[in-house]
Design a protein around this nucleic acid. Structure first.
Length: 411
RNA sequence: CGGAGCGUGGUGUAACGGCUAACAUUUCUGUUUUGGGAACAGAAGACUCCGGGUUCGAAUCCCGGCGCUCCGACCA
């Protein structure tokens, strides 16, 4: 993409009403736009990052047998009444509205109810199991207080997968697969080193749920990290019983601030009982389906990456989620030779399906470099009159600041 | 939902109750420049969040609303 066509502009200063580092940088670099507190639009660069994150998650979900669907944001009150989650006294962050005929509808904050209800038409027998269904869907949560930029929004994209199994053993086996898939996802997203499998409250059907917590001061959770075992315990459940279960001692734990980037938990028969999702086993006996739920917020992941991978000059994306693989910059020269050579390289790379952002604007070198630092594409290729003299280009690594000269023909 | 603070060109800031609301950035024109947000000249851009009130006079003081931020509570 030519930068002269990119409609977003960078800005020197962040709006004063935005304090979170992730949102400040993402706004300054033109990735997102704040519409109101906790509500952000994603602009071309931001959408590219979001799509990269989504695709990594999609590949890993498909790899464990997930089937992608797209459920609705508008929710029928009936199914929520069946689980007693329509009442504002029970769930206090609903966005609700009415149809013209007066019926109540909600904007989904999660999708256990509608999907469980939908699956009743498709799961009748043990032969129809197991199933794992997932989607990427905008969730709406009427938070009392939105904060931390895109890390805690009122409207946000979420990947939610729901598993359906015949019994607890089968469920546990899938749960373990999902846990491993999550670990792979965070590794691929560049968050592996800072992300810990964290034991948290499990609810009525399992002793624990598992959160994936990434260490950052921008986080809102307090966790206790065991570095040797690469796991952590959420402050909510830190007690002697948990320490005993995990075979760890309190003295080995270090308190850290972290953000919950993913979360997996067993639902047991809570939803299948309430909504009547049953199947016939091999003996013809009717049994409730055992369910699990597995979430990741791509927007929150993007904010977390921005918090973690940035410096005083701007963003520094991991290659796997960078909006472009290469930021190609042509410095101005009078002869036009640099422009011509860079145009040719841009065409060549684009033909090879390399994702290139090409700064073809008539701006000074300083402006181009500053913008490039801010936008944070990990590899930068610069061509100028100086490098063109020996038909070379400069490759600069955004993170390490190291520079390498290579022949243009080798690119 | 408790507590605190703040709303001024697109953005960031300034202005004692008193001149045509200032400066930087941004955008546009021209000249000049071309490896780290260049320089000069000219121009554009604001009912000072909204509604009342006090006053000869309000961006400034008072009341109400709306919005934003921070601390805390909450976060299935």
């Amino acid at each position: 993409m030519k930068q002269s066509h990119l409609f977003t502009k960078t800005r020197r200063e962040a709006p004063k009403d935005e304090v979170a580092k992730n949102a400040q940088l993402l706004i300054r670099a033109g990735y997102i736009n704040k519409e109101m507190a906790g509500v952000y639009s994603f602009l071309p660069l931001g959408l590219r990052v979001m799509n990269k994150i989504v695709q990594i998650i999609r590949e890993e979900m498909n790899a464990i047998g997930g089937q992608e669907v797209h459920l609705t944001a508008l929710q029928d009150k009936k199914v929520w009444e069946m689980t007693n989650r329509w009442d504002d006294a029970i769930v206090d962050n609903w966005f609700k509205t009415k149809l013209k005929n007066g019926s109540d509808v909600g904007l989904g904050f999660t999708h256990e109810e509608p999907l469980t209800n939908l699956m009743k038409d498709h799961i009748r027998s043990f032969r129809d199991l197991p199933r794992a269904i997932y989607q990427f869907q905008t969730k709406f949560r009427n938070e009392d207080r939105a904060k931390s930029g895109i890390m805690r929004a009122r409207e946000f994209l979420m990947k939610d997968l729901y598993s359906f199994n015949v019994d607890d053993e089968a469920h546990q086996a899938f749960y373990e697969q999902a846990r491993k898939a999550y670990t792979r996802i965070f590794d691929r997203l560049g968050l592996g080193g800072q992300t810990y499998l964290t034991f948290a409250a499990g609810g009525s059907f399992s002793k624990y749920s598992h959160e994936f917590q990434t260490i950052t001061d921008a986080g809102e959770d307090i966790i206790y990290v065991h570095e040797g075992k690469r796991l952590a315990v959420n402050k909510e459940v830190l007690n002697d019983e948990v320490l005993g279960d995990l075979g760890i001692s309190r003295t080995d734990l270090v308190e850290k601030k972290a953000v919950e980037v993913g979360n997996i938990f067993s639902l047991g028969t809570k939803f299948s009982d309430a909504l009547g999702l049953n199947f016939k086993d091999a003996e013809g006996k009717l049994k409730p389906v055992i369910m699990g739920s597995y979430g990741i917020g791509p927007g929150r992941v993007m904010g977390t990456i921005a918090e973690l991978w940035s410096d005083d000059k701007g963003l520094v994306w991991p290659e796997s989620v960078s909006p472009f693989a290469i930021h190609l910059i042509a410095l101005n020269d009078e002869s036009g030779d640099v422009k011509k050579a860079t145009d040719e390289l841009y065409e060549k790379l684009t033909k090879k399906d390399v994702e290139v952002l090409y700064d073809d604007r008539d701006e000074t070198a300083g402006t181009k470099f500053s913008d490039s630092d801010l936008i944070g594409i990990p590899r930068r290729i610069v061509i100028s009159a100086k490098t063109l003299k020996d038909n070379s280009a400069e490759i600069k690594d955004r993170k390490t600041d190291t520079v390498e000269m290579v022949a243009i023909s080798s690119l």
